[in-house]
Each structure stands twice: as C-alpha cells, then as structure tokens.
Nucleic acid binder design. Structure first.
Lengths: 232, 232
DNA sequence: CGCCTGTTTGACCATTGTCAAGGTGGGTGG
DNA sequence: CCACCCACCTTGACAATGGTCAAACAGGCG
C-alpha cells in the first residue's frame, strides 16, 4: 500500500515546479517524511470530510478532484503528473472539502501536512512557490466555473478539444485521454449530452472514431466558442 | 477620483486580517504607496483583460467579482469590508481575468502590485497571510461552484438564507443586504427564478415583506439543503 | 402625485437530465 | 481462432428545470 521514497522519486520531486527552488535542507526534510502510494484507476485517495493530514504530489498518472457524491458531482480540476493536490485543505481547514479520485493508474507522493507547513514557514522561497501554486489553482477553478456556468454543452466540448490544438491553425488528430464518460463528467454533463454534443460538432468538420478525434478545421471550433451567447 | 491615505484609513488597514501581522516597515511602505478611491454603486473598478497593476482592499462597501459580460455572468464571490480583491491577478498573470463591480457605495484602497509583491518577498509573515487569503478565496470559489452546479435554485436560495442564521436554532429575521436582482445574480439565476424560489420557501415557514425575510423554522430550510438530490 | 426601477406573475420555450433500449468493440476463455 | 460477454457508447423519447418575454404591480424618491 505504501512504501519509502527512492532516489528516483526524489528526482521527480525536484523537477516539480512547486519544489524546484527549495533549499536542500527543506527538500530533504520533505523527502524523508514522505511515502509513496501506488494507486489504481478509480481509487479514492481521500474523501470530503476526512482529516487533512497530507498533501499529495502526483508522480505519474492523473487525479480528479471533485465536490459532491460519487453519482452526482462537480469536478473542480484534474491534477496531472508533476502537480500537487490537497494543498489548500492541509494548509488551512484541517479537513478535506473535496474528494480525490485517481482516473488512471499512478504513483502518488504523500507529504505530511505538518512537515509541509513547517517548510513553508522556514523557507521564504517555498512560501512564494506555494503562493504561485494556489494562484494557479484558483485561476483554473475559476475558469472551470465560468465554462460550466456560461457555456452550453456543445461549446464546452469544443473548447475542451481546442486545448489540444497545435500552435499553427492546422487540422489535427488526437486520442482522448480518458473514457468519454469521464470527460463528460469533467465538462459538467452526462455521457448522453456528451455524445450529442460530439454529433453536433461533426456538422462543423470533425470526425470521431472511438477515442480518436480528427479536427479538420480548428478555426471553426474556435469561432463557435468565441461567440457563445454574448447577446442572449 | 483619487486621494491620499489618511490616518483613519491606516487604522482600518491594520484591522484587516491580511495586514494585521505585518512589520511596521512593511505596513508603512504599503500605506504610503496606496491611494483611496470613493466608488458609487455599480461602478466598475476593473474589467477582465485590463492590466493588473493594483491590489484592492475594501474599506467600506461591497464589491462583486464576476466572469463574463455585463448582461450574462457568473459571480465568483463578493468582497466585503476588510477583505481584498485583485490578489491573484496582480500576483501572477499581470492581467485581471474578471470584472470587479461595486454593489454599494464604498471606499477602496488601491495598493500598487509592485509594492505588494515586494512586501510579500520581504516579510515572511505577510507571505503566510497571503497564503491564507488565497486559500480562503479558493475555498469560497469552490463552494460557489458546488452550489451552482449541484443545487437547484430553491436550495441555493435556502442555503443563502441559512448563512444569516444565528447560532441557536431559533427563528430569525433578516434584511437582505442587496437588491433581490443582485442576490439572484450571485446565486446564478434570473430575478424571476429568485422570486419563484422565494415563493416555494414560503410553503416551508418563511415570510418575506420587501427586503425583510422572516425565517420561522431554520431547521426545515437546513433539511431542504441537506437532502438535495443525493440519489437522483 | 407620478415616474422609474425593482419585483412578481403567467405563459412559453430551450437546454439538459433521465430512462430505456439497442449497438459496438475489445478482451477473455473455450 | 472464434464466439461470447461486458462495459462503453449511442440514440430516441420524455420530463423537468430554469431562462425568456411580456405585462401587471409595488415602492421609494423626486
């Protein structure tokens, strides 16, 4: 369930934005106090209401953070490899207010909150990095909120697909990173609505075979998102 | 439009959670660099996309922070007297990503972002206070998101009204702090839906005359919110 | 007293969730 | 290697929530 950290884990830890500018002592203290968990897809890492004793860093895989219940929920954000979660809970309230669920197999570093808080106090550079991380998180939750409250389903999906676009305006093909069911949840809709939204997008030059999506004309999609009812 | 800070302003500044544990020098530098604005109801303090050159502290009055347009928007949170806003934008991106609009007459302290950032770097206690403020903000935006995505309108209103409840479970009477139109916006619904939601609540022991609301049985409302479709 | 704005109400409509059923595809075991 | 099975996905019909439009109403401030 739980094992000691290895040097390889440590390398990955250093590579993360939040931990890259630490003093060696601070890094060492965090590293020594931490443990590594292997998680399988769909594993619940913590649930709302539990005591927030740890801060987590994703070494590999992805984790979804949501409010609400298993069956009906609102996804706040998805944590990818190299990012942390549980940060706010462990810094302030002492209780997790959301649920963290692995959406792929992965490896998670578990850092005791007390160690983490001590590090924040002792290392001003670290405090700054934490400020940065919290800001980004606030930003992305706000973005998510805006998308879901103001955009209709079709535009939500379109804007999701556009995130994968290459720099140039060319056509491109992607493989969806998750089951459609899961992406639907992230986009705040049921799987049926997702499917119908995809169908609508096919009328705008897009084909989709299984998990592979081909976007013929990215600019069309972008235009779709831009003029979501500004004048309702 | 804009005037120098007075000693009275300074007193208020010290009283704010974010600024209460500063070193005298830090406080002084912030105080000296800041200006005070009088704002009238509905005044836009900054808009999305503008360069984020200042962080604001509310000395009196209230300010709504939202995404989207004037006519269709999503309110992220409401800033009350003694709190700050523009924090995240001025700390990171350099551009405001939301709009700040006064929802009452008020006095706003404007702190240059550069001064603020310098203070964060130089004073570890201040950095900690900023971490705390950002955490709270993240928490309240997440709460807002959850309410709006997961709760139907009636429950949203109920939970709003319950926030004003006194500690004991007794009946209580409040005066709504804003026009109903504005509260409706905050709760993510139109004024009509707000009105209808209020009507529904009248069936659960609640009376409402103008802006005065009398809650006969708070526990009933609380129950209403608790069992919002956990098993849809 | 009268305007202007906020509020209520009713009728209607659009979007999305829900339920049910059928299709598809990939992996497993015979 | 094939067939089956299960989970995922799609589709259709339907219901419900909430938004929209329009009109009546109320209340505060000149």
């Amino acid at each position: 369930m739980d094992r000691k950290t290895t040097l390889h884990d440590r390398q990955e830890l250093c590579g993360m934005a939040l931990f890259s500018n630490l003093t060696p002592q601070t890094l060492e203290s965090i590293f020594l106090a931490s443990r590594v968990n292997e998680v399988v897809n769909h594993a619940v890492i913590f649930g709302a209401g539990q005591s927030a004793d740890d801060i987590f860093a994703v070494l590999s895989g992805q984790v979804q953070i949501y409010r609400g219940t298993d069956v009906k929920n609102a996804v706040l954000f998805v944590v990818r490899s190299g990012e942390v979660f549980g940060l706010r809970s462990a810094l302030t309230t002492g209780l997790y207010t959301e649920t963290a669920e692995a959406v792929s197999n992965g490896r998670i570093l578990r850092i005791p909150a007390s160690t983490f808080r001590a590090a924040v106090k002792s290392d001003p550079h670290f405090a700054e990095a934490v400020i940065h991380a919290l800001s980004q998180r606030l930003q992305s939750v706000s973005d998510q909120f805006e998308r879901i409250q103001l955009m209709p389903t079709v535009q939500r999906l379109a804007s999701y697909l556009i995130n994968f676009a290459p720099g140039n305006g060319d056509a491109y093909e992607i493989r969806l990173p998750f089951e459609k069911k899961l992406i639907a949840r992230y986009l705040g809709m049921g799987p049926e609505s997702f499917s119908r939204a995809m169908k609508k997008l096919k009328e705008h030059g897009l084909s989709c075979k299984g998990r592979n999506v081909h976007i013929r004309n990215p600019e069309t999609l972008r235009a779709l998102c831009r003029d979501y009812d500004l004048t309702p």
